[in-house]
Design a protein around this nucleic acid. Structure first.
Lengths: 338, 338
DNA sequence: CCATGTAATGAACGCGCTTTCATGTATTTC
DNA sequence: GAAATACATGAAAGCGCGTTCATTACATGG
């Protein structure tokens, strides 16, 4: 691997001049610049990132911290982060917190040792995580959740919950229920609050509220069992259901079908996340879509602004959501429509 | 951020001794070691990764090159790579080639500049990519595909194709067809070959062969249209279908249902990948599972062996696949079974 | 008691780069 | 035409660490 010195020798200039050419310094004679660039080409020279960083520069590295990485929701965000970061000349080092505070802490210290220019994170806990991020002295953008004292990019889950309630009411349903997690740690509780507030604001009581305190696990059928048990015990009174995420919606539909209900004729179901599952299920699932691509892109944008010290202000971006109507909430939508 | 010098001063030793403590050098008096470790604690000292690397050490960084990152297939592999790499003390920098040779080349040069210790890659092309990887002089493991001259971790798509044919024949089907991509660039063509070879070996002709030259896109319904058009034109003769991947299987099922066929009573369908989709669809889809977690883990293992120069041999690992039976190929499996 | 060996440590160099600071040359100004 | 200014470049000092080599102190053997 050739170094700057090699280039300098070949071009009969000093290493300093090569460095100036590389960094686009103005006071280099055009002919010198040209000569140096040629030599760089010829030697296939590439500056050593470590040396560059050590000498006081950037790493052009940003750290990404996600709770899971195989979850389609996060992997889609990751995808757009990678795309935009790459576009801006940054590489990403991806870490998985597994929702563990301890892991998060380890990750942060290794990212700090790596001197990443900035961090985009889904903090494990909105409260407890705050202080460890604070004393990091590295630009941080929180995504998906707000993090007190930091810029963030997210959607309002409260408004989204309201929105789904309104959507179902506007569709003419009157017996509206909820299925999903109600654990205060998860965002679902907030969706549920918005949902309920709109419902009661419209003078309605929820027809069924089927909650569990664990998040829907992609690999089990716990939700199906939950629903069957609920129906056995309490009966079923809804003509429309809000499921707190697409996996839950999917499981819900399976359970309802197996109990003899027709979707959407007997019961309409709306999910949350607009994941692949929602698009491909049979019946396909109406779902509230978060702008995942935009979340990633905006996060990178905000982060780079901070890295370049173009701003000091804390910006809490709330992106718009939209509801995608599919078969599960409309008898008129047919399979071959997306 | 405190440096080694600070620690050295506080502990009344030289930086060299601190370095020795850090690297576990044997010739440090236990009491000295203890004192130094205390000072490291006290100052919350963390070695600077860049300096470390520059001074001739490892980066503890491995580069990952994937064609897509939001595809569940790859994101699950990525997940296990991250997990195992983290366990071994490595961070990963994740790059997306978007199946472009040019991009792949750029990525490689940036990874080289970063001095990553090794690379795990899904090469864009098994043939053309070879030479650029060769002149990299960095340990490389290819996953999912073989790459001539490098160790790899993959499954035999040919055998998998055979296996599916055998599976369907053993189940008693006789009119067996194929749906999916046939582009020679994709792995599907190889699956198809294995599938056909077994079929003809068993004295059977394929009942229907429905191919397109584009890969199934997650966001369109092109496969559904393809199938309907095929049936209109040629009729439909299969009692079992092999779909080259789960997305295709899913679309196929949608199309068949809309044409009035019952799954699996009229037609059985087997997919490939055993993705979330296969598990959650209605009906759930039988599918050939690749051991995604193991692919990631083994790749990291092989790579680290190479990084540590424990071996020079090229190892082409072929992992075992298995077929997961679900509703789409068995009338006896019910919804609530995984 | 001197020679040789061993254990523990420090001094100093270099990894490849960025960035002052100093130097030298060409251009401008009165 | 001398002084002041701008421009182009080089020399050299670190950035924080690993590592080699030298040094010291002490133990061992004859």
């Amino acid at each position: 691997m050739s170094s700057m010195k090699d280039v300098a020798q070949l071009a009969h200039v000093s290493p300093a001049t090569v460095s100036r050419v590389l960094s686009g310094h103005p006071s280099v004679k055009p002919e010198t610049r040209k000569k140096v660039l040629q030599c760089i080409q010829k030697l296939n020279y590439q500056p050593n990132a470590a040396a560059r960083n050590l000498a006081g520069g950037r790493t052009n590295l940003i750290g990404i911290i996600l709770p899971e990485i195989s979850n389609p929701f996060y992997s889609e965000i990751l995808h757009s982060i990678e795309e935009y970061a790459d576009f801006e000349g940054y590489n990403i080092v991806v870490c998985c917190s597994r929702r563990s505070q301890a892991k998060e802490k380890n990750i942060l210290s290794s990212l700090k040792a790596r001197k990443v220019d900035g961090i985009i994170t889904v903090p494990v806990s909105s409260e407890n995580s705050r202080s460890i991020y604070k004393k990091l002295e590295i630009p941080v953008i929180s995504i998906t959740k707000k993090l007190d004292g930091f810029s963030s990019v997210s959607v309002s889950h409260y408004n989204a919950g309201k929105r789904i309630a309104r959507y179902l009411i506007d569709l003419g349903y009157e017996q509206i229920g909820y299925v999903g997690s109600a654990s205060p740690e998860s965002m679902s509780a907030i969706k549920f609050n918005g949902f309920m507030d709109y419902l009661t604001g419209a003078g309605l009581e929820p027809a069924d509220v089927i909650t569990s305190h664990t998040t829907a696990n992609i690999n089990t059928n716990s939700i199906q069992k939950l629903i069957r048990r609920y129906i056995q015990k309490n009966g079923f009174h809804s003509d429309a259901l809000f499921a707190c995420d697409d996996v839950t919606a999917c499981e819900t539909i399976h359970a309802l079908i197996s109990c003899g209900y027709k979707i959407p004729d007997d019961v309409a179901v709306v999910g949350f996340d607009n994941s692949l599952l929602a698009r491909k299920m049979n019946p396909s699932i109406s779902s509230l879509a978060q702008p995942l691509g935009e979340i990633g892109k905006r996060a990178v944008e905000l982060l780079i602004q901070r890295i370049n010290k173009e701003t000091e202000e804390i910006e809490e971006l709330e992106l718009r959501t939209r509801i995608i109507t599919r078969e599960s909430s409309s008898a008129f939508i047919k399979t071959d429509t997306l």
